[in-house]
């Protein structure tokens, strides 16, 4: 089935929608910022510092999601021997890494007024730092190796090993006693956040996801043109 699915064509068709996606991203981001900074209420305990949640939490969710996707695609590279998977995974990495850094930095800023410290070596924060290191190793493995096949192999192995860290990040707050609070938004259990805070949180998540899609499309297109450029050299 994969043989008949023309990924190049599909993604290039989506790529034509780039301006449209950019417009939606800006609109959703502006609505999200207004909700997060003006309309949403302050927390009874954390006061206005809770607003940091609207950039910290979506960043953490998306960076974890993107790394999981990269790892799954890396399995796909070994199973289906499809080089398009490696191009998609490579194009996803920059936005995933950025969101990981944003989650770490904003978490640190949030930690100062709430915990009284910029940094603590607790399970959640340390595992998120480890995820950033895996992202960095993944991106560097594409830059270090000139041989494309070797770069695909090494980066895929890094992503597959890094997948072990994903459940550790997710469940670290349940498995160990940490400074970090447990998850407030649950798919299976009842969510403990009031809708007045949940709505801006979801709007910001949607805006961040659209930004990831935009960066992915631009990066994927760049990678495709790089390949065609090499092809022109060989003519």
């Amino acid at each position: 089935m994969l043989k008949y699915f023309n990924l190049n064509k599909t993604l290039l068709t989506i790529n034509r929608l780039r301006k449209f996606i950019f417009a939606i991203f800006i609109t959703v981001l502006l609505v999200g910022l207004f909700e997060a900074l003006v309309l949403s209420p302050e927390d009874y305990k954390q006061s206005d510092s809770v607003r940091i949640m609207y950039v910290h939490v979506p960043s953490a969710w998306i960076s974890l999601g993107i790394f999981s996707l990269i790892s799954i695609l890396s399995f796909g590279i070994f199973i289906f021997k499809n080089k398009n998977f490696s191009l998609i995974a490579k194009s996803l990495a920059p936005s995933g890494f950025l969101f990981n850094i944003i989650a770490l930095v904003t978490g640190s800023i949030w930690g100062r007024p709430t915990w009284g410290t910029w940094w603590a070596w607790d399970a959640r924060i340390t595992s998120m730092l480890l995820l950033a290191i895996f992202y960095l190793m993944y991106i560097l493995s594409w830059r270090i190796f000139d041989n494309n096949d070797k770069a695909i192999k090494v980066s895929s192995i890094v992503a597959i090993i890094g997948l072990i860290n994903v459940p550790i990040v997710k469940f670290s707050v349940d498995w160990w006693s940490t400074l970090h609070q447990p998850a407030s938004v649950n798919l299976l259990k009842e969510t403990t956040i009031h809708s007045s805070m949940l709505v801006p949180l979801f709007i910001m998540t949607a805006a961040f996801a659209l930004f990831s899609l935009l960066i992915f499309l631009m990066k994927y297109n760049t990678e495709l043109i790089k390949i065609k450029n090499k092809g022109l050299d060989r003519l």
Binding site: L33, D48, I52, H56, L98, I109, F211, I215
Partner: peptide, 24 residues
């Protein structure tokens, strides 16, 4: 001012948006 948390909140948002701008 945000009840004294303005510096923390604004720096978080500015860092995020700057990151978006630089990567884009």
């Amino acid at each position: 001012y945000m009840n004294g948390y303005g510096a923390y909140v604004w720096s978080s948002f500015i860092f995020t948006l700057s990151g978006f701008f630089i990567l884009y």
